[in-house]
């Protein structure tokens, strides 16, 4: 399966025959809607017992050109959730602006609720609860639902946002939440998730550690981070559109921590010597 964002949303080769790329070479003006232009590669994430770890590299490619090398593809939402974007970067930026607006509206609403409380009002019974949902603001599951509706609406108008998105945070029952939505509005959850090439290369590794929700609920934060770093390394080895600088986000009940200048360490390219069958070398 071809997992490049350019191939997402296209008629499948095995169903419709080989892809005819001739239209890409015309001088007609093209829009991001018709095909992704500047793209980010995989986003990966795994749940652990008190939250979710997510990672994505800092590269935005223009076709095969490594165009921008400091792009932040993990975005916090209301400091309770993280959204990770794969696919078109301009659509990501549009969504980011949109989500910022949504977060501001939500923050105002929450403000209104606390300011408007009558002194002896029954409100704020549960606001002492420190869990991220009890403040009445959108949690990760609400946000994911919203994004799903947004993406599905755009696909219905044949004007898709060319992204696959991971949303991490907590659900209404204050359990770790991780879900995905793509450019067609297909949404699903799993103890670990990966977009693009990550679905082929990282997901099998992550599933070794968190095959089920129960497994994920036993993982510690350190273990989860270690698995994710390992996966980022594998992706850097094998995905030609990837970078060794990446962002790592950890969502817990205490909030969101994103570090945006992680570097892949202890790389070993010794395996490359043994690879035969590609390029110019003969046997």
């Amino acid at each position: 399966m071809d997992h490049r964002p350019q191939a997402w949303g296209r008629p499948r080769d095995d169903v419709y025959g080989p892809y005819d790329a001739s239209y890409l070479h015309t001088s007609m003006p093209k829009t991001a809607t018709q095909s992704p232009i500047v793209t980010g590669t995989s986003v990966i994430a795994i749940k652990f017992k008190d939250g979710v770890v997510m990672a994505a590299d800092n590269l935005a490619s223009y076709g095969s050109l490594a165009r921008f090398t400091d792009v932040k593809r993990l975005r916090p939402f209301l400091s309770t959730s993280v959204v990770g974007f794969g696919g078109d970067v301009s659509d990501m930026q549009f969504l980011d602006r949109h989500l910022t607006e949504l977060a501001i509206d939500e923050a105002y609403e929450a403000e209104g609720c606390s300011a408007g409380d009558v002194s002896s009002s029954p409100s704020s019974t549960s606001s002492s609860d420190s869990s991220p949902n009890k403040n009445g603001q959108l949690n990760a599951s609400n946000l994911h639902k919203y994004l799903t509706k947004l993406m599905y609406r755009r696909r219905n108008s044949f004007d898709p946002l060319w992204n696959q998105i991971l949303v991490a945070g907590f659900d209404s029952a204050s359990q770790p939440f991780l879900a995905s939505v793509d450019l067609r509005g297909t949404a699903f959850t799993s103890p670990s998730l990966a977009t693009g090439y990550g679905a082929m290369l990282a997901q099998p590794i992550m599933r070794k550690y968190a095959a089920t929700e129960e497994d994920a609920a036993r993982l510690t934060r350190e273990e989860a981070v270690k698995v994710v770093r390992e996966c980022m390394k594998v992706l850097f080895y094998r995905d030609a559109r990837s970078l060794d600088r990446f962002s790592l986000a950890v969502v817990t009940k205490d909030g969101v921590e994103i570090s945006e200048d992680e570097v892949l360490e202890e790389q070993s390219w010794a395996f490359a010597e043994r690879i035969r069958g590609y390029g110019t070398q003969t046997v």
Partner: peptide, 9 residues
């Protein structure tokens, strides 16, 4: 063939 966004999977 015409290549557009395929809304189905």
């Amino acid at each position: 063939r015409e290549h557009r966004f395929d809304p189905y999977t």
